[in-house]
């Protein structure tokens, strides 16, 4: 059972029971805030769940669930496109679904959940669109226009934020020495120089 004693800006020492940090970190990776719930840190669990998972889901919804996918094209336009899913894998549960959808499509099956986070099939032209000679990805960009980019940004930012949350679950908050405490110490030394004799006296 790991414990840590961070000092807050309010000069209070808060003892945190991290329980098993590895399990907490893994749970936080899966769903933001779940690891903190496991540790009994309910307020932070709610903050991380609402802020990080909420951002992720909201961003995903802006592009109809298509901004996150595991690229399956054998000759991608750039390495950036192919490995972008890694930047979006900071939140585990949705990225597991994205990889699962890729697996299903590669094995010739139909994507589940209405194609949520399924990879685009570049050779398919969906009915109802004018640009039937273009791939599915281009059609998504055409249909969602700027929201596809905004969705990508939201999801990626949420993923990187979750890395901070995972660290918090593993090791507690990153607390810097409060500035007020430093200033108080300095003021006290200046007011009462006699109470703090130099070393060696």
């Amino acid at each position: 059972m790991s414990k840590t004693n961070p000092t807050t800006a309010a000069d209070e020492t808060v003892e945190i029971d991290l329980r098993n940090p590895a399990i907490a970190g893994a749970l936080t990776w899966l769903i933001p805030g779940l690891g903190h719930l496991y540790q009994g840190r309910f307020a932070k669990s709610v903050i991380f769940f609402v802020c990080i998972f909420g951002t992720y889901c909201f961003g995903l919804s802006l592009a109809g669930g298509h901004a996150v996918y595991a690229d399956m094209s054998p000759a991608p336009k750039s390495r950036f496109q192919k490995y972008f899913i890694l930047c979006q894998s900071g939140v585990g549960a949705p990225s597991i679904l994205a990889f699962a959808q890729r697996r299903i499509v590669l094995s010739g099956g139909e994507p589940v959940l209405g194609g949520l986070m399924a990879p685009p099939n570049e050779s398919d032209g969906s009915p109802g669109y004018e640009f039937t000679d273009r791939g599915t990805l281009a059609q998504w960009h055409y249909h969602y226009h700027r929201f596809f980019e905004i969705s990508t940004v939201y999801v990626t930012v949420a993923s990187f934020l979750n890395i901070l949350a995972i660290y918090d679950a593993l090791a507690g908050p990153v607390v810097a020495e409060p500035e007020e405490k430093e200033e108080k110490k300095k003021a006290k030394k200046e007011d009462n120089p006699g109470e703090n004799p130099p070393d060696g006296d």
Binding site: P6, A10, C51, I52, V157, P173
Partner: peptide, 19 residues
């Protein structure tokens, strides 16, 4: 996005709600 990032970052620096 700014609200979300600010709250998440603040939560990684402190434990109590007010800070």
């Amino acid at each position: 996005l700014l609200v979300s990032v600010s709250l998440a970052y603040g939560a990684t620096r402190h434990e109590l709600m007010k800070p």
